[in-house]
Amino acid sequence: MALFDGITMLSFLRVSIVPFILRNRYRKEMILIIFLKILALFILWGCFFSHPVSRGLDHSQLIKHFISLKSASEPK
């Protein structure tokens, strides 16, 4: 699999991207932190936001549910 004029993908990564990342300590730390934050966002999305609302609920039932919860929690 040639990428640019006979350079394979593996040698391209070894020549260009890997030295760029490993050039200094701070760059490695920043890339690691950004990677971990992106991973944490995907985990949070998977745990809390990826599941759709129940198939039996439509938009009006969902609104009525949240309005009833809000009115029940307000002091009388």
Rank of each mutant, 00 (worst) to 15 (best):
G6Y: 00
E74M: 13
F12A: 09
S60E: 07
L69F: 02
G56T: 10
I34S: 13
M1S: 14
L22P: 01
L41H: 04
K37C: 15
H51G: 11
T8S: 12
P75I: 05
I21M: 07
Y26I: 08
F66L: 04
A72N: 04
L13Y: 00
I63E: 06
L3V: 14
P75T: 06
A72C: 00
L3D: 07
G56L: 09
H51Q: 14
L36K: 06
Y26W: 11
L3A: 07
I21V: 14
I21Q: 02
I34T: 14
D5Y: 08
P75W: 00
I63G: 00
A2V: 03
I21R: 10
L57P: 00
L41E: 09
D58I: 07
L69G: 11
R55V: 15
M30I: 11
F48N: 03
K64I: 02
T8R: 03
K28W: 00
H59Y: 11
E29D: 03
I33A: 15
L13S: 02
K76I: 13
A72G: 13
I33D: 12
F49P: 02
A2H: 07
F66K: 10
K70R: 09
S60H: 09
I34K: 14
I21P: 03
L10Y: 03
L13M: 12
L57G: 03
S50N: 08
G6N: 02
H65T: 15
K76C: 06
L39Y: 03
Q61C: 02
I38N: 13
L41R: 12
R23F: 05
R14G: 12
K28N: 01
I67V: 15
F42A: 05
H65S: 07
I31W: 04
Y26S: 11
L44K: 08
L32K: 05
F48T: 09
F66R: 07
M30L: 13
H51V: 14
F66Q: 06
K64C: 03
V53R: 09
P75D: 01
A2M: 09
E74H: 04
I17N: 01
K37R: 08
N24G: 03
K64S: 07
S73G: 05
I21C: 04
A72Q: 03
M9Y: 13
L62M: 10
H59L: 14
P19Y: 00
H51E: 13
M9Q: 11
I63N: 01
R23A: 14
L44F: 06
